[in-house]
Simulated scan of single mutants.
Amino acid sequence: MTYAFPEPPAWRRRPWSRRTPLGPDIGIGILLFLVEAALFLWVGFGYGMEVWAAQGQQEQVEAAQLAQLTWMQRFFVATIVFAGLAALFRAPWTVLSQLLAAGTVAALLVLAQHDYDRTHPDSASTSGADYAPCFSGSGKCS
């Protein structure tokens, strides 16, 4: 004789115990993607306005660019976290939309970081033609 375990109460079911229905999954995925895109564009516009308002003052322009890069990095992490939560709730279309958003943000972040690095090269040494590097470590080379 076998005994079947009773169905656990509704309040004890975990979100990952069953797959999210298709309709809410697609709706939430699209809505979250659109909200993230609007937020990204709005904040990017705000940082662009800060650069424009700096009127060529290089320190303020650089500060705004670095703040935008930092914000983009945090936004990228947030999209990855949302993708992880969607995977936990077994919502494959939401996971797909979040991975698409994370990929887009990652590409834009890489492009922005590359542009910043290209405009801010490391300072090259200003040595003359008679410069001879000292490899001994003593500091007494001539």
Score class of each variant (00 low, 15 high):
E7D: 14
A132V: 15
T126L: 13
G44V: 09
D25T: 13
A10G: 10
V110S: 03
I26L: 14
F5C: 12
A38I: 11
L41G: 09
Q57S: 06
G44F: 08
H120V: 05
A91P: 09
I26R: 10
P21K: 14
V61E: 10
S97V: 06
L69T: 04
S136T: 15
G56Q: 12
D130F: 15
S136F: 15
G56D: 09
L111C: 02
G84M: 04
E7S: 15
Q55R: 14
W42E: 10
G44P: 05
D115C: 11
A10L: 15
L96E: 00
F89V: 08
I26P: 04
W52C: 04
T2Q: 09
D25G: 09
P24K: 07
P133A: 10
W52T: 01
F76Y: 04
R13D: 12
D117S: 09
A37E: 02
E7L: 12
Q57L: 14
G137I: 04
S123N: 07
A83Q: 03
P92S: 08
Q98D: 00
L96P: 01
S123F: 11
F82Q: 05
A54S: 09
G27Q: 07
S17M: 04
Y116T: 06
P24D: 04
L66K: 08
L34T: 05
H114F: 07
G139Q: 05
H114Q: 04
V95P: 03
E7P: 10
Y47L: 05
A106Q: 05
Q55N: 13
A112P: 01
A10V: 15
D130H: 05
L108D: 01
W71Q: 00
H114S: 01
P92I: 11
A124R: 13
M72W: 02
P133F: 15
P24G: 14
P121W: 06
G139H: 04
R19L: 03
W71G: 02
R118H: 12
I26Y: 12
G139E: 06
K140S: 07
A83P: 00
G139Y: 09
D117L: 13
D117K: 13
Q60R: 11
V77W: 03
T126H: 13
P92T: 08
A63Q: 12
T70Y: 01
G48Q: 14
E36Y: 13
F76Q: 00
A64P: 03
D115W: 05
L100E: 00
P133M: 14
F45E: 07
D25S: 07
A107Q: 02
F82C: 10
Y131R: 01
L66T: 06
W93R: 07
A67F: 05
L39T: 15
I28S: 12
P9N: 07
R74D: 00
L109H: 08
G29P: 03
I26G: 07
W52H: 13
A53W: 12
T70P: 01
A63W: 13
E36F: 06
A64V: 04
L31W: 09
L100W: 00
I80V: 07
G48E: 02
P15M: 09
A54N: 07
D25F: 11
L99F: 04
L34K: 01
D25V: 11
M1C: 05
Q65G: 08
V35L: 10
A107N: 07
I28V: 12
Y116M: 02
L39F: 11
T70N: 09
E7F: 12
M49W: 07
Q68E: 08
A132Q: 15
W52P: 02
P121V: 04
A132N: 13
L108I: 03
